[in-house]
C-alpha cells in the first residue's frame, strides 16, 4: 500500500477540522471539529507505526492514549460549555467577548459571571 493514501486522507481531515474550528459559531460544533483534527493525527500515528514496523508499537499505543485524552477533553469542554450556557443562556463564541480589550463590555454581560459566586 502506498504511504500517500493514509497521509493524504489525514491531511484532508485535518484541514476540514481547521475550517470547522475557524468558521463555526456554536461551541459544540467547534468541539466536534477539534475531534476531527485529533482523528487526523491518530491516522498519521497508526500509519507511521505500521510503516516503521515499530516493535514497541509506540504509534498505536500513543493513538490509544490520544483517544483517552480526547474523551477527557470532550468531557471537560462540555462541562465548560454547559457552565457558559448556564451563565449566559447561549454558547455563541462570537458573542463571548468578555475577555476582549478594545470594546467596553456591556454591564449586563460583565456582571453575570460573578453573580453565581456572590449570590447567597
Amino acid at each position: 500500500m502506498h504511504l500517500a493514501y493514509p497521509t493524504v486522507v489525514a491531511a484532508l481531515l485535518f484541514s476540514v477540522g481547521v475550517y470547522g474550528v475557524l468558521a463555526r459559531r456554536n461551541a459544540i460544533l467547534v468541539l466536534m471539529s477539534v475531534e476531527l483534527m485529533l482523528n487526523a493525527v491518530n491516522l498519521n500515528l497508526v500509519t507511521f507505526d505500521i510503516w516503521y514496523r515499530d516493535r514497541l508499537h509506540g504509534g498505536q499505543v500513543l493513538t490509544l492514549f490520544t483517544i483517552v485524552i480526547a474523551a477527557a477533553e470532550v468531557g471537560l469542554g462540555l462541562a465548560i460549555i454547559l457552565l457558559v450556557f448556564r451563565n449566559r443562556q447561549m454558547v455563541d463564541i462570537d458573542r463571548l467577548r468578555a475577555l476582549s480589550e478594545e470594546t467596553e463590555p456591556e454591564p449586563g454581560t460583565q456582571r453575570e459571571p460573578d453573580r453565581e459566586e456572590a449570590a447567597p
Binding site: 486522507v9 484532508l12 481531515l13 476540514v16 477540522g17 475550517y19 470547522g20
Partner: peptide, 9 residues
C-alpha cells in the same frame, strides 16, 4: 471519512 467530515462542518 472526508466527505462526511465536510458535512459535519
Amino acid at each position: 471519512a472526508v466527505g462526511s467530515a465536510i458535512l459535519v462542518v
